[in-house]
Design a protein around this nucleic acid. Structure first.
Lengths: 212, 212
DNA sequence: AGTGATAAGTTATCAGTGATAGATTATCAC
DNA sequence: GTGATAATCTATCACTGATAACTTATCACT
């Protein structure tokens, strides 16, 4: 029993670049409300005020449209990481802050996060190569800022693991685990979320950085 | 371009309990080969040697069938954790060993692990809710063995977080992150796997347990 | 203004999906 | 045998993502 979104009145044609963004906006709104696989291309088209086949003039497939939303989302992650880098110093406090930025992004953009890191690779590898790969690449690129921070910490002798790449991967994995489980299993009887996140970050800090 | 599985010859009817298991076996085999969302109920039925609507005599929905596979996978993990508890002592060495058991399970049973922990939830939450939480219950059971070990460590004053449930959840999340990323993104340029796993466990030990 | 090219959008339709209805067959107690 | 019951079938539904073929709006250029 979902209340249908109001259909936009048919727009004038030939607005080229804008229409593509309108479709993405409409799709994001529906995906956020109903979930990725519960939204059909017909619903997206109706919300965007065009016919369903018209979507395929802008996006080769539905997955392609989703990947575009992912790239969009990870652009915001990149922006946040850049902002976090603005007042960066190689310190424990900044380490905590950087971890927090990543976790918050994942929790606030669960669909984009899922597409980038949690979707099964298809057997023939088509999705990852053509579509999911773009999303994952955007995610890894945004995460590259993390590697820079870890390398900086290591350069100042603050890390316990002397291989910054390996340390970055273990930290990434640990962060991803928390985000993906919270996203995929919200029904699990988690302890209070803020407390869990804080404890997780504290554990990673103790395990990764020299005390003091 | 998928080679279809050979259709099983039609079995005698009325074998009740066995047929359900046969369907689950066929489904897991197909899911393993082609991925969850690429396998249709018709393919499952054909591999099981029955007609497609016959599935619905055993499973209310496709998600229900998947949930049953979930229960199976969780049960396997529970058995492994129980076995690991046999020669348990509250020590750093046993902590490391327990972490290793979990990671090894995930890497040795990537398909079961995917089914258990990496399936996309349906947005309305019916996936885990509709089976009366059977999958979740099996998950909590496997989780329980883990919680027991952490609680024992905490009782002996070895942990840095005084809330064993919260600590268990952060450790679980960190382990899950490594396993799920290695399983879902094997093409990523990871550092050498054994080194990565060892560094991950070492980081978790330092972050969770008192030094010494 | 008129004309043709092009871009954008349309209707009609496809094969495949999960799921349901109703007829049909096998099995078993009597 | 016979009826009841359980298991399974065929036929079909509404819906999905995607494609083909046709139509219309827009614009540069005569």
């Amino acid at each position: 029993m979902k209340a249908p979104l109001v259909r936009s009145p048919r727009k004038a044609k030939g607005q080229g670049g804008e229409r593509r963004e309108e479709i993405l906006d409409a799709a994001l709104s529906l995906f956020t409300r109903d979930g990725l696989h519960a939204v059909s291309t017909r619903q997206i088209a109706e919300a965007a005020g065009i016919s369903q086949p018209a979507l395929y003039a802008y996006f080769a497939t539905k997955d392609d449209l989703i990947a575009d939303l992912c790239v969009r989302a990870f652009a915001t992650l990149s922006a946040r990481m850049a902002a976090a880098k603005a007042d960066w110093t190689p310190s424990q406090a900044c380490f905590d802050k950087a971890m927090r930025v990543y976790i918050d992004f994942g929790l606030e953009n669960p669909d984009a996060y899922r597409v980038a890191f949690m979707i099964e690779k298809s057997h023939d590898g088509t999705f990852l190569a053509r579509t999911g790969g773009r999303a994952m690449q955007a995610g890894v690129e945004a995460f590259g800022a993390f590697l820079g921070m870890v390398a900086d910490l290591q350069a100042h002798g603050l890390t316990l693991d002397d291989d910054p790449e390996r340390l970055t991967q273990t930290l990434w994995a640990a962060l991803h685990g928390l985000v993906s489980l919270l996203v995929a299993r919200p029904e699990f009887p988690w302890v209070e979320r803020e407390s869990l996140i804080a404890a997780h970050i504290a554990m990673l800090r103790r395990g990764a950085l020299r005390p003091g």
